[in-house]
Amino acid sequence: MIRLRNIDKYVDKKFQRTFILKNIDLDISEGEFITIMGPSGAGKSTLLNILGFLDEPSEGEHYFLNEPVHQLSEKKKSQYHRSHIGFVFQAYHLLDELTVYENIEMPLLYRKVKTKERKAMVADMLDRFNMVAKKDLFPSQLSGGQQQVVGVARAIIGGPRLLLADEPTGNLHSEQSQQIMELFKRLNENDGVTIIQVTHSDEMASYSNRIINLRDGTIVRKNPYRLIQ
């Protein structure tokens, strides 16, 4: 599904080139649940953003469903965002002015889904995540865990084939975190959504089926399956 070849990401500052990512080679197949781990500043978020087309690599080749991403136009990328890729953020990034219902509905507006169909899809999503009673509340009236559930619902309502989550449980208690991970697992197993998440927690990583270790912008190849028995 995804193929990265010789991906470099660097910034040039005062005659000095700093690498954030260096020589990344990575293949991801459809249906995988991957965790990216590594110390702070290792380049995890950068890698995730590149995988989600939000950032561009400085060098290298990036294929998504056999399409060369490095040659895609902005418009084409937007189309992929709408139809193939969902994001879950550490800070949830729900829109404060919109209710739970409206937040979940929003991606469908940009996909020009018809009103009736939209209603059904949002209702379905609320049902699935047990949020029906809270649909008219604003984000500020929810707990962090509930907000992230809404964040996940918003990310998957468009039916993405790839879900990217940058420290989705970073601001949550362990109980709430487990809930989110259960959600991810079900999505991955039942719906076949490919998931790539960044986390610092071994526990959260244990939900996935492959771990990529990142250190100083490069993938540590040694014992990549350490955590998986």
Partner: peptide, 16 residues
């Protein structure tokens, strides 16, 4: 800005 960021990640284009 938050709204713009989230919407762009969802696939909204500049024109919108």
């Amino acid at each position: 800005l938050q709204e713009i960021g989230v919407k762009k990640a969802i696939g909204a284009q500049r024109n919108s």
